[in-house]
């Protein structure tokens, strides 16, 4: 999943000041720390989204063969959620675990793992690209998100699916639980699945047991692990830090197709 190296605000001023070894570099860093400059630079990400959406349309991400599967697929981000509720669910093999789907839907529901396994499934061998730069190939089996959306009937105003996860990102603090969001165009893409199996066996805890999102045409940090709830919303500005995801709140782009 997402990178472990977080931009940390506290040391920033000290770092910036001390880096004034040369006028040029100091100038660069002062510019780099300016939120207005960052807003400007972020406009390129919106341009990338528009152009890539136009170029790619519904095109499928490349799929690979069994022979291509990475032997030791790197677990990244949270490897074992520091959360009592999650640990209790894991201890009983996720028998009590339920996925809640609610928000702007006509029929909010809860699904057990058995419910999800009974739905039509899709298996795909795809490449997982981490924002850090590395790639691994894995085989994922799960329910297409489109199947679930069809059952809960999203209301007309719904624009984004928000994934609320079990893993706190900062010292077990439940207020810092991982979350992510994708638009409904990405949500109904055939390769967008909620995976409960990896490489033919139940999804391991390090990779997001019991259920993780696969969004094959974007980077790893979009693919929320330990998914507990899917909320359909019109706007994600009131959720978390308001940028649509945990890493987005740390400065990463919401659109991660590049």
């Amino acid at each position: 999943m997402a990178s472990d190296d977080k931009p940390r605000a506290p040391g920033r001023r000290a770092v910036t000041t001390a880096a004034l070894g040369s006028l040029l570099l100091g100038g660069c860093d002062r510019l780099a720390g300016n939120p207005k400059v960052q807003g400007w630079l972020g406009s390129a990400s919106r341009l990338s989204l528009l152009v890539q959406h136009w170029l790619a349309g519904d095109a499928l991400a490349p799929e690979y063969t069994e022979a291509d599967i990475t032997r030791s697929f790197k677990g990244n981000g949270t490897q074992d959620p520091d959360d009592d509720e999650y640990q209790a669910l894991a201890a009983s093999g996720f028998a009590e675990w339920k996925l809640l789907v609610d928000g702007l839907v006509a029929r909010p529901v809860q699904y057990s793992l058995a419910d999800l396994r009974a739905m039509p499934a899709r298996t795909q061998i795809t490449r997982h690209d981490c924002v850090e730069g590395w790639s691994c190939i894995g085989k994922w089996t799960g329910v297409p998100l489109a199947e679930i959306l069809q059952r809960v009937e999203p209301k007309g105003a719904a624009r984004f699916a928000v994934f609320h996860c079990a893993d706190p990102m900062e010292n077990g603090n439940p207020a810092t639980k991982y979350y992510e969001s994708i638009d409904l165009i990405e949500a109904v893409h055939p390769q967008t699945i909620l995976a409960y199996e990896m490489n033919g066996t139940a999804l391991p805890v390090a990779h997001g047991a019991p259920l993780r999102l696969r969004v094959e045409r974007q980077l790893g940090y979009k693919m929320a692990k330990y998914v507990m709830r899917i909320e359909l919303v019109e706007d994600f500005r009131s959720i978390g830090g308001g940028n649509g995801g945990y890493w987005e709140d740390q400065g990463y782009a919401w659109y991660a197709g590049i």
Partner: peptide, 20 residues
Amino acid sequence: GWITLPGWQSLAEGRLWHFF
């Protein structure tokens, strides 16, 4: 750090600059 932008470690900000 003296040859990276920004000088501190920040993948997110490096990507912002790079793609713009």
